[in-house]
Simulated scan of single mutants.
Amino acid sequence: MAFLKAISKTRRNLAENSACVNAIGEDWDAMFRLTSYKLKGEGVPVKERKYLLWALEKYREGGDPHKFAYDTKKKKEVRGWGPRVQKNIRVRGMLRPGERRA
């Protein structure tokens, strides 16, 4: 549980995820023997499985969890068809539905 709190960030709170807590447990030896298949059986999502196994390996190598833990990426602010829509760049050809002439 302490390890999950150490590698958790604001958008990735593993300490409150019941599937992760159930899969990890309190036994350190069992935690280091975790595999992706065991985590999948407990119902841990794919991104969290990969992050958890990566963090365990970093910790096993002697790293400090507070230094190597990172948060998930924020959701993109701008949606659309790339520069055509976002930066009002003139593009030759037919307009797409919903696109305006500059």
Rank of each mutant, 00 (worst) to 15 (best):
A2F: 04
F3M: 12
A6Q: 06
K9N: 13
T10H: 09
R11M: 08
R11A: 05
R12Y: 03
L14G: 02
L14I: 14
E16L: 14
E16Y: 01
V21N: 00
N22H: 07
A23P: 00
I24F: 10
E26A: 01
E26Y: 05
D27Y: 10
W28T: 14
D29E: 12
A30H: 01
M31G: 00
M31F: 06
M31V: 13
R33K: 09
S36P: 02
K38V: 14
E42H: 11
E42F: 15
V44H: 03
V44G: 00
K50A: 09
Y51M: 07
Y51D: 05
L52Q: 09
L52A: 11
Y59N: 09
R60Y: 12
G62V: 04
D64Y: 04
P65F: 06
K67S: 05
Y70E: 06
Y70A: 13
D71V: 15
D71L: 14
T72P: 00
K73E: 14
K76M: 13
E77V: 14
E77I: 11
G80L: 13
W81K: 11
W81C: 08
G82D: 04
R84F: 12
R84K: 03
Q86C: 04
K87G: 01
K87F: 14
N88V: 11
I89P: 00
R90P: 03
G93F: 08
M94I: 12
L95C: 01
L95K: 07
L95N: 01
R96P: 00
R101F: 15
R101A: 15
A102G: 06
A102F: 04
A102R: 11
